[in-house]
Write a protein that binds this DNA or RNA. Structure first.
Lengths: 114, 114
DNA sequence: ATTTCAATTCGATATTTCTCGAAATATCGG
DNA sequence: CCGATATTTCGAGAAATATCGAATTGAAAT
């Protein structure tokens, strides 16, 4: 995770509307273990229209939400996959894990006190 | 940590210059355990001028760095304390811990699959 | 008190970003 | 093919942001 990539993720999450979208997707797309193999898949598969409805309360898709989804996707925070007429949105769990590690890990010291 | 507060932190970290400042402070102000009581204090105490020098390579303090430090401080990510003629900068460890938890914790599900 | 050093504030400018509505694209069903 | 639905792209305007230099504050030293 290089510097620019990290800053882009934070910038994407720095907008209130995008943060709401991201949190909705996180809450919505929680993984669930299935079968004995313990395989994991998302239970709900929200479309752009559903994101739109939940986040802005609008009944039709706003270009604004589309714009924000693209930003989140460009930042590597969410995934979008075409299914028929719709786009299915989900969080990129690897990215979330990297961000968790970013804050949880003590950085290399630069003051010789390590 | 409410929504706006969270977004403000991410917005603050979303600027490349501010992220560099933040990472410098994190690396610089690593805590060190001292004595038998295990008390912890920062080893280096960077001033605004030092941040400036390290981050932008400038020899004198730029108003830009001052501006970015204020943003980071307003977002609750860093602390600044006056000492004599200088301001000593440090990261707010509680805030970093909250952000680590933010990404490490599975959110409440909204799809009835919990 | 005056000078000096550290840092912030101010004013202006250039750039970016958010938002909205209209038009375009793509896919499905009849 | 045509119409309906889902989503993206485009164009424009308003608002926010980053940056720079100059002026200002505040504390310390002389």
């Amino acid at each position: 995770m290089d510097h620019k990539e990290t800053a882009d993720m934070f910038k994407a999450l720095g907008d209130p509307t995008r943060l709401r979208i991201f949190e909705f997707l996180r809450a919505c797309c929680c993984p669930v273990a299935l079968g004995e193999e313990g395989e994991v898949r998302p239970v709900e598969e929200p479309t752009v229209g559903e994101v739109c409805c939940r986040v802005t309360g609008a009944t039709k898709i706003t270009s604004t939400v589309s714009f924000h989804l693209k930003e989140l996707r460009n930042a590597g925070l969410i995934t979008m996959e075409k299914r028929g007429k719709n786009m299915i949105c989900g969080v990129d769990r690897a990215a979330v894990a990297r961000l968790a590690a970013y804050f949880a890990t003590e950085p290399e010291t630069s003051c010789g006190c390590g």
